[in-house]
């Protein structure tokens, strides 16, 4: 199973890898959701949907899970010390 934005836990950060251009709206890309950019899951709405993200360090947006599921990411592991 691939890791998508939907897999993120609250507070986790990840780098965007890839997505299906037919299901992810262009508008989201224009908000900064591009491969190589960072995404952080800030809040999850009650009932699990939608998701409140910080994209590309500055763009605060909420998207529905059905869109989040289409965006593949690589989670940034924080080194615990």
């Amino acid at each position: 199973m691939r890791t998508t934005i939907h897999s993120l836990k609250k507070g986790e950060k990840a780098i965007i890898k890839d997505f299906d251009i037919d299901t992810v709206p262009l508008k989201l890309l224009e908000m900064g959701c591009l491969p190589g950019n960072m995404v952080e899951l800030l809040q999850i709405a009650p009932f699990g949907d939608p998701l409140y993200l910080n994209i590309n360090n500055g763009s605060h947006v909420a998207i529905r899970v059905e869109t989040a599921r289409e965006i593949e990411v690589e989670i940034i592991k924080t080194n615990l010390w």
């Binding site: 605060h60 947006v61 909420a62 529905r64």
Partner: peptide, 11 residues
């Protein structure tokens, strides 16, 4: 209809 729910959460 396509869903584009993309809502900005402004300051």
């Amino acid at each position: 209809g396509k869903t584009y729910f993309v809502v900005e959460m402004p300051n």
